[in-house]
Write a protein that binds this DNA or RNA. Sequence first.
DNA 1: GCATAAATTAATCTATACATTAAAATATAC
DNA 2: GTATATTTTAATGTATAGATTAATTTATGC
Lengths: 241, 241
Amino acid sequence: MTLPSAKVVPLIPPTRGRTAGKGLTPLAERAYREVKQMVLDNRVHGGEYLLEEELAKAVGMSRTPLREALVQLQNDGLIDIVPRRGIRIVPLTVEDIREVHDLMQWLESQAAYALATRPDRAERVKALRQIVAQMRRLLVAGDITGWAKANDRFHMELVASAGNGRLERICENLLDQSQRVRMFTLRMRKPPTRTNEAHTGMLRAIEEGDGEKAVAIQIANKKAWLAELEEIIERLQLRYL
Amino acid sequence: MTLPSAKVVPLIPPTRGRTAGKGLTPLAERAYREVKQMVLDNRVHGGEYLLEEELAKAVGMSRTPLREALVQLQNDGLIDIVPRRGIRIVPLTVEDIREVHDLMQWLESQAAYALATRPDRAERVKALRQIVAQMRRLLVAGDITGWAKANDRFHMELVASAGNGRLERICENLLDQSQRVRMFTLRMRKPPTRTNEAHTGMLRAIEEGDGEKAVAIQIANKKAWLAELEEIIERLQLRYL
DNA sequence: GCATAAATTAATCTATACATTAAAATATAC
DNA sequence: GTATATTTTAATGTATAGATTAATTTATGC
């Protein structure tokens, strides 16, 4: 493959800084956001198929920008483009949830450990504490969906403290991939007071500069979280969600 | 956004198992592979622009499948699609290399640690040792490019030992993202005997079940690797590559 | 009634025409 | 000569027509 000489143009900020739907055309971006929201809101279910033409009609555009959005969504691991059959919502098995859980635990523990060793960690800890306070209020108010969203913000804020853009994008995507299952099972779980306490304890350890303790608390909480989810999924008797 | 009822079809293996260019149409897949190879082979450079029509002509297809391939490549972090300007090869700064390095170090250390605790690790250690032996032979033969490829296989094999598909894809992509810089600076580095020794030592520690020692060796080698690269880039006086 | 071949259908895949946009070039005023 | 307005150009963004493919349905032979 031979090319004419590539043109060099002044360096401009990359579009990749944006976390999702990055570098897509205007219609493709809208399609990306709308289809993604439909998936994350559990309006469709794992294993189900959608047809391109029907999706295009639903989002009010031709198939060309929609297809570009679908390539992005497939890359995010939310859908599969099945040749000549349609768009399949990626079914999530308990193994998938374990994979995502393991990765998040590994990456978050690195972020927590790194934060515990930073001299200027007080600001970050303060911001994280504010999120936990909000989580407590939402739990008391009975707003479990709001609590889950705040919990996601906590995790993303913790990860952001590592100052690594690629890490942030990876974690945000992992949260997206597991969102359908986490939301589907949310009301079947015990009230997440254990998570609130674990976050509080982890932040105290970070504040004290005790990275190993912070990591130990994080790992224990995440293990308990996964065990409860596995129990729920076993009780549901579903191979995938 | 409202949809007709989604069709449910028998569960078939997802296309996402494939590591790259997954779920793309035949022409899009070919475009993906060819353009990616062009980028990874340093036939274009960071900051340079390419035009869609010229690329389409070069790969011998219309813009439609090419554009789908470009969405995938952008998601891989290899190019940026700049609206109404063209495709830009993502410029890599030393900060980018640090990010990738940090992430790989975190993820690989998890994999190494996990492997060191597995009772059935002998088989994996054996496979990894074979790769290191090949790396030694290639170094003696003066084939530094072959050595670098074998080194990548070592890292991917180590990561694969964790049995986490998402981890593998993430790491493969991180290796891709840093490839242009690593290959560009390859011959400016000292002969990588330190890396060969580090791999050997790490495998011995894993074999002995000493995860912490394995991780310590891995971290030390990666730190030295990065320091040498930073020195080279500073000597080159380039803001990005 | 069953197996296989042939025809039909459904849906994507790809090419390309046309619309749109933003940069570049040119014209104009001072 | 410079600043601003206007026009032109280059390249993408989007819609859709037609090609292609694979699944489904129907026809045929035994």
